[in-house]
Design a protein around this nucleic acid. Structure first.
Lengths: 194, 194
DNA sequence: TTCAATACTGACTGATTAGTCAGTATATAA
DNA sequence: TTATATACTGACTAATCAGTCAGTATTGAA
């Protein structure tokens, strides 16, 4: 792994765990055993380093999901939704730094004034909601999911899952306990047309 | 309003909008037109100021909800749940600073090493989930809600609402659009026993 | 071997930070 | 009026911060 990538990885972890403003370039430098000047050689400034970290997270989540979707054949749309939720929660556990970074307030503030940041966030969330929506559409076709509004339903289910992820990464409630109930609720949402 | 309360209110807004580490005592002092030394006269240090702000938010949310619950008679448990969700989203819109503070990462990191902080967060969330659970219990009694696990269902619905609140305060998706769908999904979760 | 591009560093700077302290106003109550 | 507690300030400090710059290694190709 190149020194640049090492810096990037250390930055993701530190930004995620401590926040942007509470992480100094000196800390990132120490974690990767380079000089602070070297970080500014690879990245224009601290903000650019953060944007690179965010992009890395976006690419990580998207490529993991793509690979996962390729590796599995789903029996039905409903089952696909279940599996997607399970994988999302698994990923949020094994790659906690990614989701901590995505759940921190800083990128959303930055997005208000920085187009690149806004783009990373939009792409990340739109791709994820797309995946959820795809499951709903497939389910509606194969009859395992009722005639609901695909996009809106996907959005609500996604926000429900994101809520559970937040509780998990902020140590509020254990997602293990919530998972079973989450799937039950999700099934009811998808099986019935009010 | 006492100077101390003015400082506290300014701190809530600044901490919420900019984060703990990106808000300096000088900024809080300027916003309230006092010297920085005066802030340290009223609050031991910056962390204590944050804890006071968090406690203020907790008390604010709880007292608002208590007053709201006293002011309304609910026809049924199911309708109570609908109203509670609507009020929660309304509150998250009108008192956005409170929810921004509660959604920021800092208090959850602090809670790992600070009992007072942990206590504020636990009390806030437990009281809120309690309210959601109460609606489920009442609904089960009056027959408008199916025989579901009260606590777990309340938790999932709460996390769903919190997910939508997060999308709202982070400017990701408009909660207005999501609200209708949220209520529909909630109804399905509560009306059916899988 | 030479040359040039790339990778990297130590030493520095000016700005900002949380927090201190000695002293000054202001209010209140005897 | 006087005494005492409370509220408040200006001036300061030591530490830390992001970012710069002149110069030094290291690489790889001709």
């Amino acid at each position: 792994m190149s020194k640049k990538d090492e810096i990037l990885n250390a930055a993701i972890i530190l930004f995620a765990e401590q926040g942007f403003n509470n992480t100094s370039i000196t800390e990132v430098a120490k974690a990767t055993k380079v000089s602070t000047a070297n970080i500014f050689y690879h990245f224009k400034n601290k903000e650019e380093l953060f944007l690179a970290a965010l992009e890395n997270v976006k690419d990580g989540i998207m490529s993991h999901f793509e690979e996962y979707l390729k590796s599995i054949e789903f029996e039905s749309g409903l089952q696909m939704m279940e599996e997607i939720i399970a994988y999302y929660l698994y990923l949020a556990g094994s790659m906690q730094q990614w989701f901590l970074l995505l759940h921190s307030h800083y990128p959303y503030r930055l997005a208000l004034v920085n187009e690149v940041c806004r783009d990373h966030l939009e792409k990340t969330y739109n791709s994820l909601v797309d995946i959820f929506e795809r499951a709903v559409v497939i389910g509606k076709e194969d009859g395992t999911i009722a005639d609901v509004d695909s996009r809106k339903t996907a959005l609500v289910i996604f926000s429900m899952v994101e809520g559970v992820v937040r509780f998990k990464i902020y140590n509020l409630y254990d997602s293990g306990v919530l998972f079973g109930e989450l799937i039950k609720c999700c099934n009811k949402i998808l099986k019935y047309k009010e």
